[in-house]
Amino acid sequence: MNPIILYSVLILAGLGIVLAIVLFVVANKFRVDEDPRIDEVEAVLPGANCGGCGYPGCRGFADAFVKSDNPSAMFCPVGGNKAMEAAAAIMGMSIEAKEPQVAVVRCAGSPAKRPRTAVYNSAPSCKLAASLFAGDTACPFGCLGLGDCSRVCKFGAIAIDPTTLLPVVNEELCTACGACVSACPKNVIELRKKGAKGRRVFVSCLNRDKGGVARKACGVACIGCGKCAKICPFEAITVENNVAYIDFERCKACRKCVGECPTGAIHEVNFPPRKPAATEATTVAEAQS
């Protein structure tokens, strides 16, 4: 045999063995023991990497979930109760089911209800507009309608309606990850309980101006009159800074407040149509549309 071939093969084989031993020793010395459950938990998570849980992606959540002392306090808004049950099963524990939430837009000031008083002439970004001025209407609290919320949504669940210039949430697609909530410079969007059969009642206004000023700026503004708070049998409504707020933990969706509101600022969604006797409800429905 040609000695060159023989030596080449022997030297390469020898090198291979020596390096394999080095690698084996190093791998053992610097081995990182990772909990195998992290991989398992990650597998049951949705893999959207949206960050809605507050951790850097699903892997980050899985890692924190396995290492956490109190994993039941953590929640994946996208995977919901199903993913959390599966994750808890991997950990050999059970988790209390959370009520599903949904993003709610608390402004109803469409151009028809809230006349424009100024022209915004810069790049379409709510954050930018809010840093420059209070808004192109007389209401400094309402939606700017430039769509920061829809741009940050990874699920295509929120979009600006071209006629009302307000965001509309698709309840089927919304995962309540909260990205739109933190993107909105006016804090117009809130995560609220979805409610039984999706039925819920909320005040669709954030105007903290005094009643007259608010009403002048927008036809469907909450004027802070307090009628809703008086009629509410569950003490779920508070009026602070001239604006009412319904606590969704206390609200039983009885809808008494909806008819009481003089401006139609309280909205009800996903309820069956009321009996014709309740005329206020029809005006509310109009206000919504």
Partner: peptide
Amino acid sequence: KVSLLDYIKLGKN
């Protein structure tokens, strides 16, 4: 006609 200054103002904020 890019709104350069507006973006810079946002960044400065």
